[in-house]
Simulated assay, not measured.
Amino acid sequence: MEVDVLEFLVPVENNKTLFVWDIQPVHTEAEIYERLFSVFSSFGPLYLLKVSSNAPLHPPGFSALVKFYSAAQASEAQRRTDGCLLFQTSPLKVRLSSKQTPHFLSDSSRPLSHARCLELANHCLGFNGWTSDIITLKELTNKEEEEEGGGGRRRRLRFGCLLQLSFPPHRQTTRGAAVVEDSFTCTGPDVLLQKRCKLQKQVREKALVQAFTTVLLILLGNGKVMVEVKQTSDQFLPEQIEGVLQVNEFSWSEFDPDEEDGGDEEWDLTVS
């Protein structure tokens, strides 16, 4: 039985990437996108579909880049669509990528975004195939800093979240934690409230993303999906969460390159 393993990571491997050529200019770019998406998404969930016009020195037409999460699904899609007419009167040329992956990307393990995690989980497991529950969400820092001109004061907020991700049909559970912070000019209680709501949403989403990075989706040849959880040295166990959880040296730069490292402070996520 053929088995493929999906992780909640950005796919960078060549065997998950297809190039499509010889697309006739008889449809608009938006129409071509819809038709290609309909064709290739029937083989499995897509991470990316991009349609581009041919370069000026080439004949009029389009080409496309298709990225799958699964190498097996990409291979099947290539075999079954290459040389086919699909939605036009001449055959399409579909090939697996042969472009050499840069060394700095070959071992890349960048997590999917929050929206992509939800999309992949719902596609493979269904809306009832998984649940997430917040164990604790705490405001860790609320400090006023130096006063600025215009009557506003600088304020720094930091939130921490511990979340549990469960897959009841598969009897699997994992957990994720996140810390986010922001420094801003507070000109009134409405600004403070909006910032609190925004940070609480961000920290919940980052905790869920972190939990999904430990999950493996095992696609079986008969169409069924199994869920396994990677055992890591820093994985949270149920008996370790009672009382106080302390998160040390928590860096989220890998999830948000624009976010500065918060340093080596120790955060207390007490479960009340």
Rank of each mutant, 00 (worst) to 15 (best):
K93W: 13
F87M: 03
F37E: 07
E29D: 06
H170E: 01
L193C: 11
T136L: 01
L157W: 02
N222I: 05
V3G: 06
L193Q: 15
E266C: 14
G243L: 04
W252M: 10
N128Q: 14
C161M: 05
A30F: 00
V247Q: 11
T136D: 00
K195C: 06
S63K: 15
I218L: 12
M226W: 04
F127R: 15
G263W: 11
L216W: 11
K230L: 05
R171L: 11
T17W: 08
L216F: 08
D107A: 09
I241P: 03
H170Y: 04
L163H: 03
P91A: 03
F68W: 04
G83Q: 04
D261Q: 11
V179W: 02
L36E: 02
D133Q: 13
C161I: 03
L92Y: 07
L48P: 00
I135L: 13
P238G: 09
L57P: 06
W21Y: 14
Q88M: 07
P91I: 01
I241C: 13
E145D: 08
L193M: 08
W252T: 13
L199R: 07
G262H: 08
S63D: 09
L245F: 11
A178C: 03
L6H: 06
E254P: 14
D4K: 09
E254Y: 14
Q73W: 10
A177H: 13
P102L: 01
F159E: 00
F43T: 02
Q100V: 11
L9P: 12
P257Q: 15
S166E: 07
L140E: 00
L85W: 09
S251T: 06
L163P: 04
D264K: 15
F184K: 06
E119K: 14
H103W: 09
L163S: 04
